[in-house]
C-alpha cells in the first residue's frame, strides 16, 4: 500500500499528500425563506494515511460535510477533490463509479445486506465493481478484524460489534483512497466500540488507510490523529493527538 503523492493544500499534517480536499464548501437546503445553510464555506483537507475525526454539536453540519465529501450529496458551492478527481460536477453515474473505486463506507446502523453472509458482504464492493479480491489482502483484513470463524454467518447471527467489524472489513477490502465512517460506534456498547475503533486505528497504522470519521463521542474521537470541530456550518477548531479530555474541553468551549 503506497500512496503516490500529490501535494494537497491547507492543513496537510502527516506526510505530504492529501486524500480529500474541500474548498469553499457551502450546502443550502430548501429555497427562499425555508432555506437552511448547513455548510457555510468550509475549507478542509484530509491527509493520506491519517485518521481524522469530525466533531461538533447536533446540527453543526458534520454529517452534511461527510455526505458532501463522499459524493453522496451534491454541494451548492465549492469544490471537493478525492485524490486528483474533482467530485463537484460529476453526474450520478460517474459519482457512483467513483464511490465504487475510491471510497469505503461504514455507517452507524444497517451496514450489511441481511441476505448475504459475512464473507459475501465483505466481498460485495469488489463484486459490484467486477473485481477479484486480493486473497492475501482479504486474509489480512479478516485476520485484523478477527472474523475468521464468522465468515459463513449472516448478519442476523452476528452481534452488533461483529456486524460493525464486518463493515470495517468491507470498507478495507477495496483499498479505497478514503473511508468515511458515520458514527460507527453509535449503536455499540463501550467494549465493542473500543474494539472497532482499535481496528480502525490499526488499519491506518498497518495498511496506511485514510479514514474520516464523524462522531459525537469524545472517547471515539480520541482514537484519531486529528479532530476538526464544526459549529453552525463552519470549521471552528482543530486538535492534533487528541485525548478524551482535550476533546471534551474543546467541545465545552464551543457550546459555551
Amino acid at each position: 500500500m503506497t500512496i503516490t503523492g500529490e501535494v494537497g493544500a491547507g492543513h496537510a499534517h502527516r506526510g505530504t499528500a492529501a486524500a480529500v480536499v474541500a474548498r469553499g464548501l457551502t450546502k443550502v437546503y430548501g429555497q427562499g425563506d425555508a432555506a437552511v445553510e448547513a455548510l457555510r464555506g468550509v475549507d478542509v483537507s484530509f491527509a493520506s494515511g491519517a485518521f481524522t475525526a469530525i466533531m461538533g454539536p447536533s446540527g453543526s453540519g458534520k454529517s452534511t460535510l461527510m455526505h458532501c465529501l463522499a459524493g453522496l450529496d451534491t454541494v451548492t458551492h465549492g469544490q471537493v477533490h478525492i485524490g486528483e478527481v474533482e467530485l463537484t460536477g460529476l453526474d450520478d453515474k460517474r459519482l457512483t463509479l467513483l464511490r465504487r473505486e475510491r471510497i469505503g463506507f461504514i455507517f452507524q446502523a444497517f451496514n450489511l445486506l441481511p441476505t448475504l453472509t459475512a464473507e459475501q458482504n465483505i466481498r460485495l464492493p469488489l463484486e459490484i465493481a467486477g473485481r477479484q479480491a486480493d486473497q492475501v489482502l482479504f486474509d489480512r483484513v479478516v485476520e485484523t478484524v478477527g472474523l475468521r470463524d464468522r465468515l459463513g454467518h449472516r448478519p442476523a447471527e452476528l452481534s452488533g460489534g461483529q456486524q460493525q467489524r464486518v463493515a470495517v472489513a468491507r470498507a478495507l477490502i477495496s483499498k479505497p483512497r478514503v473511508i468515511f465512517a458515520d458514527e460507527p460506534t453509535g449503536n455499540l456498547d463501550s467494549r465493542s466500540g473500543a474494539e472497532v475503533l482499535s481496528f480502525l486505528r490499526t488499519s491506518v497504522r498497518e495498511l496506511n488507510q485514510t479514514i474520516v470519521m464523524v462522531t459525537h463521542d469524545p472517547v471515539a474521537a480520541s482514537y484519531a490523529d486529528r479532530v476538526i470541530f464544526l459549529r453552525d456550518g463552519l470549521l471552528v477548531s482543530e486538535l492534533f493527538q487528541p485525548t478524551p479530555q482535550s476533546v471534551l474541553d474543546t467541545l465545552m468551549k464551543l457550546e459555551a
Partner: peptide, 10 residues
Amino acid sequence: ALLRALGLTR
C-alpha cells in the same frame, strides 16, 4: 441506499 453508496449504479 447502502448498495448505492457501495457503488451500485442506478
